[in-house]
Structures are given as structure tokens and as C-alpha cells.
Write a protein that binds this DNA or RNA. Sequence first.
RNA 1: GCGGGUAUGGCGGAAUUGGCAGACGCGCUAGACUUAGGAUCUAGUGUCCCAGACGUGCAGGUUCAACUCCUGUUACCCGCACCA
Length: 790
Amino acid sequence: MYNFKEVEEKWQEKWDGDEHFKAIDFHPTKPKYYVLYEFYNVSGNLHMGHLKGTVPADALARMKRLQGYNVLFPIGGDAFGLPAENAALKTGINPKDFVAKGMKNVVNQSKKLGLSFDYDRTIATSDEDYYKWTQWIFLQLLKNEKAYKEKGIVNFCPNCKTVLSNEDSQDGICDRCHGKVVQEDRWVWYLKMKEYAEKLLENVDRIDMSENLKESQRNWIGKKEGYEIPFEIVDEEGNHLGVENIFTQEAYFLPGAAYLSMAPESRLIEKWMEKVANSDQVKEYKKQASFRSAMDRMTKTKDTTSCLVRGIYAINPFTKKRIPLIMTDSILATTGTEMGIPAYRQKHQEMADQYGILPQYITAPEFEGDAETSKKWQQEFTKQLIDSGLAKKSVSYKMQDWPFNRQRYWGEPFPVVFCPECGTVPLKEEDLPLTLPETNDYKPREDGSSPLSKITDWVNCKCPKCGHDAKRETDTMPNWAGSSWYWLRYCDPHNPNQLADPEKLKYWGSVDCYTGGTEHITRHVLYAFFWQNFLYEIGAVPTRDPFKRKMGSGLILDTEGKKMSKSSTNGVSPMEVIDKYGCDAARLHIHFLGGYEDNTAWTYNGINGITGFLNKVWDLQDIVQGEEISDKHAQALEELTKKVTSDIEALKLNTAIASCMGFVNQMKRDKYITKEELRRFLILLNPLAPHITSEIYEKTFGENILDAEWPKEDQKNQSVQMTNIVICVNNKKKFVVPCPKGLSKEQLLDYLALQDDINAFLSNLEAQNIYHVPDKMINIVTKKNVYEKK
RNA sequence: GCGGGUAUGGCGGAAUUGGCAGACGCGCUAGACUUAGGAUCUAGUGUCCCAGACGUGCAGGUUCAACUCCUGUUACCCGCACCA
């Protein structure tokens, strides 16, 4: 009987610090392979999702090593940011200590999952010698004008001391504490991500990833092709105030534009507020609208509100008529200004009626014509508008620039000071890292400013440019910052002089397979594309693509079909499963439940099938007979090799496990397995169930399985290969006959003619047509006109 | 609303990409060994009017051949609706 506790402990101890798992920079002979699993969140224990997400990556890394690759398979922790800080606040432990402890914990748990990471390269985003380079990247962004600071209005809850989204502050009430929300002016650091929209779309096209994930990313970027039309803005007296560009996909409606509608957040109105006749009303409207969630504004269109802005107007560039401006919460801040065409849009008409705005009709007979004529006119008229300079082709993106600061303690400090003489001044690169000062008072402040602003020793500094008294930026970077480049650092994790040695970056190249959850597919992965593009353009990294392939791990659901997480009460811990059934069993069971990208409901049901299988594998030792591969098993072994190799490559562990089960069943039926058969089988199963296979291998062959070589398909070994040919008549199966492989249609028919019973059957048929699929089937069509159509 | 994905036995899920539908496992049924069985072994297990026919959400189509391709349709899941 297999004692998993003893065996697994033995091997995990052996693997701790094992050289086999270490990636070697510039290996002289082996080709490289880079498998990446996403950062651990360092705020708790590993959960079932990690068991599902990491094991296939581990299996891939283990197989690649056996195949003779120099594998880089690292792990690290996303240690900065809210999750760690909140957990620290809750437990009262300093975030730094909390993170140090947390990292140790998740690393230990990883080892209990049998994960073969190169632990020497483990990094955490809150390590000083790591975030030094996060800060360095920010300096490059600033230097290359990809970072800027701008004022914006946010919802702020004085009680919770946090900035709230509209979602969390419906009707001006904080979602968490039900206190009143206030509107605050804030400086926001933005990164010019929008500028990279096209490049990100190219990254999306190039990466090997499932279509629905690609669509998620494309939706997020939200590219729309249309036209931009500038409208002049004037005051009551007709003085020119500026120009408002509207975006539309139907430029030909321009003559019908009877008003412009804009989001309550409109910057235009904000800018010209002193010209607005009803500014009190407008300001109040803006405030009310800001408390409605975007979801609410989009879906509950019946509740749409609006406010006519008096005192400033737009000029329709085609009709030259003065038209009013309307704020409405049916338009979202990111949508931009739209033209209202009440003559042709029901919703617009309702809006116009409210304010007594007359519809403007388009006076072109073709426009009213049949669909084809109308469409032709639309195209021609749009062209005219472009030719006359009234409209121009334009592209709009939903994705906005990336707001890059948080009023929190636990994050990367910005390497920037504010000097009354020189303005915003970046620190010198040689002065990095700008370390996060230690404090016990890291709770968010009453007024929502960063806790760092209280540490006056740290805040007050000298301007690096002129030496004048200056102040540091007291906001910190978001937790997405550190995770936007970490795969690069793994290539050279301890380099004190560069974010990574360019030669090492070149050697390891793009990540061959990036695994992890799909919840980060829009944000994290797009940030990753953004930063790598930027770093590539400034020559800091040799490739534009961070990842060649991305596999999104499905979720583990609980019995009610909800996402299983550490917070859910019925969440089962992987450690609990390992304790009861063993690590190999836990690894196999969870992946036998479903494919890598599928959501799977956790259940213990069926785990006895897995432990039964492992016991059968163990018992193979009792039926070893003979040395070389036997003729009887040659083909099964050959097929298993092919199947397992391609399945692990594709991260389809469920079918790899199934075929291993099938193979073991056959060995049991035949009551023997030869030494060489067992050797190959153990190597094939090793990436999936590393402990038991290591033990049997050592016991039987006296060697470490990690030194073994992955079996290759070996045609020479087989004298004759047989295959089952299905014989159909009119597409109905009649016989299944074992035949040699590789026969042509004629050879096959000759071969069948040698078999009396089949020959007797076939010779009675009047074949009209014979279809042959090599090595698979033959279909004899006898009847005429069976499928004849009328 | 827009876009993407999925739909196969009692259950989880296979199907080499157009070629034996239901691999593998659970569960279930019967039997063996047992004081016992939540252990092990053996056999069976898509449905039905069972020498046959029908079966991959539903309705059509293409093909010698369709889970697979095309058209339409329904249900569910995911993304977008500034938590960036």
C-alpha cells in the first residue's frame, strides 16, 4: 500500500534547493523555456485557485526540463498595495513585517504543492532593490513625457478616508459606512496609456490566447472608428470661447444637429463656468449626477436626467446656427460630447421637447430614399464634409490614461519633488531607491491625504536641481505598478545596476507561457503590454512582446456555483486536501475535474478514483517482468507518449491523466509491465504526479527521475503497426478489422479480400463509390440516388 | 444594448479538428471475497418498440459522412457600462 505522507515529505525535502529547478543564464547547450505564473497576493494563504492555476504550469516546467530545456519558472509576490495594507491594518502588524511573513508562508505552501519554482529568484514588489527599478521606470516615463499630473474631482468618504468610485457612492452615500460623500479636488498622476492603444491592439493580435480573452481586451480598449467634427463655442454676445470636438460614427447627420449633449463631468462647462448664466443650477446638477453609478446611468435610461446650460452655445458648422448645450447623465464622462439630432432619433427628440428645441431636418431627397440610395448619399455627403474640412476621420478609444497615484502608505513613493522654483523635479537616477519611510502611523488620514504627508522629515527635502527647500510627492503608486514589469526582473533578479542585464533579457526573451487567472486580463496584462512597449522603445528591453502565450486559468467554484475564495466560508483549503489525500492526489484530482481554462466546481466526489489510480501505479512494481518494451505494449506506449506530451504542452491535464489511467488499466489486464515500459511511463506521469513517480523510479532504477530524459516517439521499435479499420456500408458500421497501417485504398481492399467472412460480405455489394480515410475507415456506398435532391 | 464564448449520458467531462459519439473517472446494478464494508476484485451501465432504430440545446442546410462546417433560433457564462 502506498504511503503518500512518507514519500511526499521525503521528496519535498530533497527538492528544497535542488539544482534541477534552477534556471541557468546563458546555458551553453540547452534551449531556454520561460514559464510564468502570476504573482502571489501576499495577504494570506494559498487557496484552491492556486492549486488549479499553478499545477499545470509546474507540469509544463517539469516536462520541459525532462525534454532538455533550460527552464525559467520563477515565483514572486505582489506585496505592495491595498490587500497587504488592509490585512496589516486588520492584524496590527506593520506591513513590512506582514509581507515578509506572508512571503515565507506562500513559499512554504508552494513547496507543499510540489511546485518546482526556482526559489532563488523569488522577488516581492515591496523589496527596496525591486521597487528601485519600478521608480526608475517611472522616471523614464516622466522623462519621455508619458506621465503627467492633472487636477480632477473625485468622490471622497471622510469617514472611510478613501476615494470612492461612483459605484460605491450612489446618491451621495458611501456604500460601506452609509455616511455622506463629499466632492474633492485632487491632483492625479496619469500615464499616457491611451497613446499606446494601437500598439496594445497589436499585442493582442500577436499573443497566443483564447478568443474570448482577446475580445475582453479589445472591448476594454474600445476602439471605434468615426469622425470628429469641431463645433465653435460662443458666449451670449457671440464671443469665441473655444472649440468642442464631437465624435460620431454618423457624420452625415450634421445638418440635423440641433443641440450638443455632454456628460455632467464635461471639462468645457467646468472651464467656462463663469459664463454660465445658471451656474448654481448646473453645479448642483453635476453634483447630483456624480452620485449616480455609471451602470445605473447606462441601464436605467428612464431615469435619465439632464440640465440645460444657459449662457454658452455651440455653432453648428454646417448650418451656422447657434444651438444649445445640454448636460445629461445618459452620457458618460468617457463618451465625450455628442450631437443631438431630434429629427431622426427618438431619444434626442424627447430631450429636445423638454427644452423647446426645434428639430432640424436634412433637406436631401436621396436621404429619404430607399436603403441603397440613402446609404450612397450618406457616404457621398460624409466625403463632402471631409473635403470641406467640416469633419475629419477619427478614432476614439474607450480606454483612458492610467491614473497612477493612491493616497496610501504601502506603495512605491514617487521619485519626484515639488520645488517652488523649478516645479516638478524628478530625482536623480543615482539617488534611487527613494525608500518608503518607516512609520507606525500608516493609516489613511482624515482628509484623505497620504499618510506620508505626516512624516515631515521625509516630506521636506532639497530640490535636486536648485537646492531650494522642496517637498516630496506624498502619494504612492498603485499596486499594479510593481506587477507591470516583474517578468523582466526574474531574468536577473539581483542586479543592482540595471533593471536587468540586457544580455540576460535577450537570452530569456518573451515569456513562452504565462499562466494565471483571467481576472487580470484587462488591467494587469494591458499594463504589461504598455510598459514593455515603452521600455522597448527607450531601448531598455529587447522585445516588444512580454508574453508569447497566455493561458487563463478557470475559477474554482463552490457547490453553489460561486467563486471559491479564501473569504468564502465553505472554501476548502488545498492544504486540507493534501493532508487527507496527498499532494499528488490533490494535483491530479483538481485537474481531472476539468480543463485549465474551464471553471470547475470543487468536489471531493471522484477523488477515490484518483487515489485508486495512484495505488494501481504503486502496485505496478509487483508485476514488473522483462526488460525491454514488449511487442504487446509498444503501440500503447507510443500513443501514450504522444498524447501526454501534447496534452501537457496544451495544459490539458485532464486528458493526460485519463490516458495514463487507460495505460495502467491495460498493464493490469495483461498482468505485467516490463522495466523499460515502467521507466517510460513513470517519466510521462512525473510532471503530473512528481512524488510517487520519483519514489518508484528511485526504488526500481536507483536513479533520480529528474536526470531522466523525456521519451520520444520511436518508430523503429515497432515492427508492424496495426490499426483498427472501420468498415461502413452506406455510412453504417458493419465490421471493425485490424489492418496494417499505411495501406492505400486498393491495398486495403485486397487485404480485406483475403479474409473469408468479410470477402463474402463485400462481394455481395454493388459498390457505387468507396471512400477511404487512411488508417481509419472505409465507407462503401451502394445505393444509387439515395441522396438525390429534387 | 454591443462584442465574445459555451451547450454532449444520472454527474465531471472525452472525441486525433469532417471519419467507430460518450474515452477516462464518479455514481449506479449484479456477482465474488468477507463477521463487516464508505476496502478489494469481476461483469454491466446513452435511449427505445433491442436481429433493429434513434441519439451531441432547438429548426433547417451542405456532404458518401456533421458534436465538428453554413443559416436561423433559445438558454447560460464572460467582457464593456470610468472599482483603471
